[in-house]
Each structure stands twice: as C-alpha cells, then as structure tokens.
Design a protein around this nucleic acid. Structure first.
Length: 578
RNA sequence: GCGUUCGUGAUGUAGGGGUAGCAUCAGAGGUUUCCAACCUCUUCGCCCGGGUUCAAAUCCCGGCGAGCGCACCA
C-alpha cells in the first residue's frame, strides 16, 4: 500500500464518489470496461453543464454585437492544415531503447536543425543517428524509430473508401473563422463584432490524467472577437475599478512577481498589452464569479514569450485553484490576423477581409499609360492582356518611345508610341481592405465545472456524522428547488405535488418532489446535489397555505405564502427574504 | 507509453481455491409535527477474456480501467 493519501487526494476521491453516486459526472462506458478520458454528465450533471453553457452564452450575447454559430465537429484535412493544427498536432516521438523514455523527436534535434518541426520521421531519425544524440535520461543512443503522435482523432469522410481525410476538431474556433464572411454580412460589415460557439472538441491524449482535467472529448466555449487593428476599441473598464486581479506577468517582461492590480491599471502599465484582452479578462472573471467560482482561487498568468503560440501577441491563461493545484481553465489570446490570414493564404479567398473607409476619400490624380485596345490587341494577340496590365501598372511614365516593357510572365515586349495614350485620370480611393485582428477567449467548460464543484464542495459534520454540501450557485444548480411534504399524509403530499407543479410552470425553474424517509434525510440529499432552496409543506400549510423555505447554505428557514414563493422564485429573489 | 500499487453491490470497505460479509445509500411498509432517528421486509456485487484445477472472486497470463512517479500535454 502507498503512503497516506494527501488531504487533497482524499478530497478528490470523496468528491468523485459523490459525483458518481448522485449522477453528476462519472467515467463513460463503464459497463464495457470504460475508456480513459471520456466522461458522462448524468441526470443531475447534464443540467449543470447546460446551465453553465447557457450562462456563458448569455454572458457574451448580452454584449449586443456577438452572435452564436454552430459548426460541424468533423473537419477536413485542408482546414486544419491551413490553421496549423496538422503540423502542430503531428509531432514525432522517439523512444530510448534502453530506458524507454519518450521525447519529442524535434526537441532532440533542435541543436542540429533550424526548423526541426518541419521534418518527417526518416529525416529526424537520420539526424538523431548521425549527430549521435544521446538520451537525456540515461545517455544511451539506442533510439527506436520515431513514431508520429497525432493528437487529433482521424476519420474519413465517405463510407465507400477513397474518401477525404478529416479530423474531429481540436477546437471550435475554426468554425468562426470559416464563417467569417457570413458573420461580417450579418453585422453589415461593421467591426467590431464577435461570434461564439459552444460545443465538443477532441484531442487524442496520450495519457489522460487527473480526472476530468485532461479529457479526450471535452466541452469548449469560444469567442472570436474581430477588431480593426488600426482602430483599437476603447473600453470602459471602470466597472472593475474596485476589483483587484491577481496577475502573474510574463517573467521575460519587466515584472515577474505576482501582483494585485485593477485591470485598468494593468492596461495602463502595459502589463496587459491590449485593451480588448483586458476587457475580456475582466468579463471572464465576472462570468466565473457568476457561476459560483471562488474569487480568491482565480488568477491570470501571462504566457512567456517562448510558450506563446507563434501567432499570439499577448496571451493570458486564467487559472483556477482546486484539488489539483492551479489549472488552466481559460485562455485569452490576441491572435492578430493569423487565422484569417492562414485561411486566405490557403484558399486564395477574398472574403476574409474587412473594409476600412478612410475618414476623407483620397483623390489621386495621376498620369497613366493607357493601352489602345485596337492596336495592342492585334499586335500582341494572346499576350495583349498581360501587356495592358503591365502598362497600367507602370510606376513612372516612359521617357521616350519605343521602350521595353517587362511582363508578368518574365518576357518583355517593345511598346511604340502609337500603341498607347498618355492621359490623366482622377481616382478616388475611399478605403482599403484589411485582415481583421482577433481576440479569442477560449473556455474549457469541463475544467471550469470541475472547479466550481470543487470550490463549492463542503465536507462538514452534523451530529458527529459526515455531512456533504455542494454550494452551487443558483445560476447553475441542476435543481433550483425541492418540494417536501413534512409527512406523506393528511393532504400534505397532495399539496406538495400541487405546489411542485405550479413551480414547474415557471420558466427555467426545475423542481422535484421528495417524500420518502425523514425530513432531515431529504434535506441532506438535496444539499448533496446543491439544491439551493427547499420548500416544506407542513400542517400549517394545510391551514393557512404558507410554506417554509429553507436556504441550503446556512440551513435557516422562513415562512411565506405560496404566492410570494412563486413570485420570488420567478424573480430569482428569494435571497432578499433572509 | 514505461514503472508501480490496485480493481468485491449505487458508495465505502472485509475476506482470499469450495455458501462473499459489513456499513452507508436506494425501494416497500410502519412509525415520526423540520435537519441523515427507529422497526420490518426487499433489490443490487467479486472489471473482462484465456489458462491451471474436480472446483477460480481468490493462483497464472493478457486486456480494460483507476491512483501515484517518469515521459507527454501546440
């Protein structure tokens, strides 16, 4: 047997067994032996996930210039090649034949090649052999041939063979980039705007660990917010003037200690380098507090320069503290124009740009060398088009005739005076096309859910017995209320059923009835799955219609009329009565 | 992927070649005037596959899964 388990380890075990026992979250496919890294949300957890997703949606949609889309999870090879995922997720691994340690092959050869990431397996192997790279662990040189480790789930589109290579998406973001033309049209071309997507992402992890922290299929929620880089949005951050955020700035920068600052000050000091990144950090914080995260267990860590993805110019992880330590739960990245540019390059599409109107149209008078079609055409025949283009693009007017003109295809022709007309044209340039920049907050919802469960999990005692309470925020609690007859007799059970039915007609309110066993046990069952309110029907209810309302977090009770109960439940204002 | 410890009802555990036991939970009934009370009854289990054996939950091998360490985690 191992040594005594740490407190955190026991806490994880205890919480996990509660989650399993009460149908919140549990390993998937367990009667078939289970699959590592895949989880079910059960009858209670399903609504928890849905409420977190909906809170997230509402949080961003309420900004007014953000829309929701939904894209396929099956994604063709070319999309992920353009986005850089095929390269990034196709690393090779080399195993040491004597000690079995595994390393990324490109890391082993990085001293011998300028761009090892681009190499194929055989090239990597030949460098490892010829340069006599030794194993960092045991110094041996008995390398097994490198193997590709593709972290994307591979699939084929089409059932009959010869289909198209595809992958399960490793992130939802590509959906927003690829539908950018429709999103832009929807917003009638006016930046800034954003699009969100909530859905599954997939990563074929080598070795999933730490429960739900590293899964193979996981719930993501991402926002892509498109902005004009030359007109950086100005955001009002005063809403957070009283909130100090815990930041750990890039150690390569000026400050490397963790600091407590307001978001406005962090932006002012250029610790956070972009106003929209700053805004989204604060908005993300608000979202997490709104679903019940503990504010003292949230911090932001800036990526070090060499850790930052190659396209990002500023990147912050939001980390949450739980039984596994500080875990990255949200990434907020300024991605520049990398993604739209990458798809533009790959497809030659011209639809991924935005139009920037100049404040004043620019009037340009210029002299041009205009080809005379009736001469140029017959003279140059199939080359006439190239000749015309080259003439119109001449930077300087010809000083004399005839002259040699270089064409785009590398050849050149002789232009004589009678072929062209030199004239003045007036051009009005009203604006220009550009690639919008993107700021992306990307949320790992399962990790966030794990942490709000962890933050809300209280192991306490009642009369010497272990007592478990899940302090879930009302905004995410799977059941908002439970209705309990004190006893299932004297009409109390019928009354309780009636009240429950009435509550169920309220929009967004979920209630269940529980009449079995003692009242204390039923409160305990409700506390375990985080039901914030318990309504109890007793003998007084049968006389005057009032009910008692019990608050989970401190187990205090008040007595109110059924009408007040319905009103306050509907307005989410039961708190105000305590 | 390597090493290691382990896998017994829904949960937590005991046992260890021949009827698998306990506690909690859950269901039914009774009792009970607000915080896991009590009584009666009930459901549910040795991860999967192969081997050894008269007999395997137990021993052996393999798989799957979990924890820990190493590695991996753009």
């Amino acid at each position: 047997m191992g040594e005594a388990m740490s407190d955190e380890g026991e806490r994880v075990n205890s919480l996990m067994s509660l989650l399993k026992r009460r149908g919140i979250i549990f390993p998937a496919f367990s009667i078939h032996g289970g699959v590592a890294g895949l989880f079910d949300y059960g009858p209670v957890g399903g609504r928890l996930l849905r409420k977190v997703q909906n809170q997230w949606r509402e949080h961003w949609l309420s900004k007014g210039n953000i829309v929701e889309i939904d894209s396929p999870t099956i994604t063709p090879h070319s999309v992920l090649e353009a986005s850089g995922h095929v390269g990034a997720f196709n690393d090779h691994a080399s195993e040491c034949g004597s000690c079995n340690a595994i390393f990324r092959s490109d890391h082993l050869v990085e001293d011998y090649h300028s761009n090892p990431d681009s190499l194929e397996g055989p090239e990597l192997d030949s460098i490892i052999t010829s340069k006599e790279v030794s194993c960092p662990t045991c110094s041996g040189m008995e390398w097994l041939p490198s193997r590709p480790m593709n972290l994307m789930f591979s699939t084929i589109i089409g059932a009959t063979g010869g289909g198209r290579q595809a992958y399960m998406r490793p992130e939802t973001a590509q959906g927003m980039f690829l539908t950018y033309p429709m999103i832009q049209r929807h917003f009638r071309n006016r930046l800034p705007f954003g699009a969100i997507q909530v859905g599954k992402g997939y990563r074929n992890e080598i070795s999933p660990r730490q429960g739900m922290i590293r899964q193979r299929e996981f719930n993501m929620a991402e926002l892509e917010y498109f902005i004009d880089p030359e007109q950086p949005p100005v955001h009002n951050l005063s809403k957070w003037d009283d909130t100090k955020f815990l930041l750990i700035p890039d150690p390569a920068g000026k400050t490397s200690e963790s600091i407590q600052v307001t978001i406005a000050d962090a932006l002012e000091a250029n610790i956070v380098r972009h106003p929209t990144v700053a805004l989204f950090m604060a908005e993300t914080y608000d979202f997490l507090i709104g679903i019940g995260a503990d504010s003292s267990k949230i911090r932001f860590r800036q990526h070090e320069s060499d850790e930052m993805a190659h396209y990002a110019t500023d990147c912050w992880d939001l980390e949450m503290l739980g039984s596994y330590g500080w875990i990255e739960c949200v990434g907020i990245a300024h991605r520049g124009c990398y993604d739209l540019g990458a798809h533009e390059d790959a497809t030659k599409s011209n639809e991924l740009r935005a139009w920037r109107e100049f404040p004043e149209p620019v009037e340009v008078d210029k002299m041009v060398v205009a080809p005379i079609g009736s001469v140029v055409g017959p003279t140059f025949r199939e080359h006439a088009g190239l000749v015309s283009d080259a003439l119109l693009n001449m930077k300087n007017l010809p000083s004399n005739f005839p002259f040699e003109l270089d064409l785009n295809d590398g050849s050149n022709v002789t232009i004589e005076e009678h072929m062209v007309e030199i004239k003045q044209v007036q051009e009005t340039i009203r604006g220009e096309w550009f690639l919008p920049h993107v700021v992306e907050p990307a949320f790992g919802l399962d990790r966030i859910i794990w942490h709000i469960l962890d933050h809300g999990y209280e192991m306490t005692e009642k009369q010497g017995e272990e007592y478990l309470i899940l302090h879930l925020a009302e905004s995410v609690a799977p059941y908002e209320v439970v209705v309990l007859p004190l006893f299932e007799k004297d009409g109390m059970n019928e009354l309780a059923e009636q009240i429950r039915s009435k509550i169920l007609t309220l929009r967004g309110i979920n209630a269940y009835y529980d009449g079995s066993k003692s009242i204390g046990r039923r409160y305990a069952r409700a506390d375990e799955i985080g039901v914030p309110w318990a309504v109890t029907i007793d003998h007084t209810t049968t006389e005057d219609g009032t009910v008692t309302v019990r608050r989970r977090d401190d187990q205090t009770q008040i007595r109110i009329s059924q009408e007040d109960l319905i009103t306050h439940l509907n307005e989410n204002s039961l708190h105000s009565l305590f």
